[in-house]
Amino acid sequence: MLEITGLSAWYGEAQALREVSLRASPGEVVTLVGRNGAGKSTLLRCLMGLHAQMTGSVRLGERDLGPLGPVRRVHAGLGYVPDDRGIYSSLSVEEHLLLPPRLGQSAWTLERVYDAFPALRARRQQTASKLSGGEQQMLAIARVLRMGARVLLLDEPTEGLAPILVQQIARLLVDAKADALTILLVEQNLRFATSVADRHYLLGQGEIVTTLANDEVKAREHELRQHLGI
């Protein structure tokens, strides 16, 4: 279980997160919903050990991730898909899949990745920056699955994607959930969020405002949209 307790973060003097606590279990999809600037991406960066100005605790199962740098957090099982998709212009599609370490039994084979993402197979030797936005997003997700991450931290995977691709990502996450992965999803697309998630944390100005079950979000969609400004 991923367990975050009392996490606060700053950019210089400005506080970006205040005492955020949340948890997500294996086989569970939890979203983090909030306006731009609410601190969602910062939270994921804190979890990856990429943001130094923070306090509070991050645990994965029995393990305290606090003292670990990003590399060892990945080895502990975290798989990060950053909001800009993290695509390299100097690496081919296949090199993106081969770059990260493989973590034990849960790591996917290249065959399995290409079976799940046929578009990537056709372009395996191409420069990844030539892929479409949707394909790049697929590649970013495929990369952490290939690695065998047990916890997926996804920063707005559906942003700017066509509805058919959003559905494809939704199916992927449902499969990953069935594989007992833990998924923490930053999302503004409520329809997508409710189609895959179990619970939702509403983040406002760096604080968890409320926690909502899936049907509550559906019932209060209009009100939440206003809150999110979308």
Binding site: P70, V74, G86, P101
Partner: peptide, 23 residues
């Protein structure tokens, strides 16, 4: 080579490369 790939990745985006588990 694999080392070359790491050098290219780190040259382009060092922090991201760490966040993908590459030391």
């Amino acid at each position: 080579t694999r080392l070359g790939m790491v050098v290219r990745a780190a040259t382009e985006r060092a922090e991201l490369t760490r966040a993908l588990g590459v030391d």
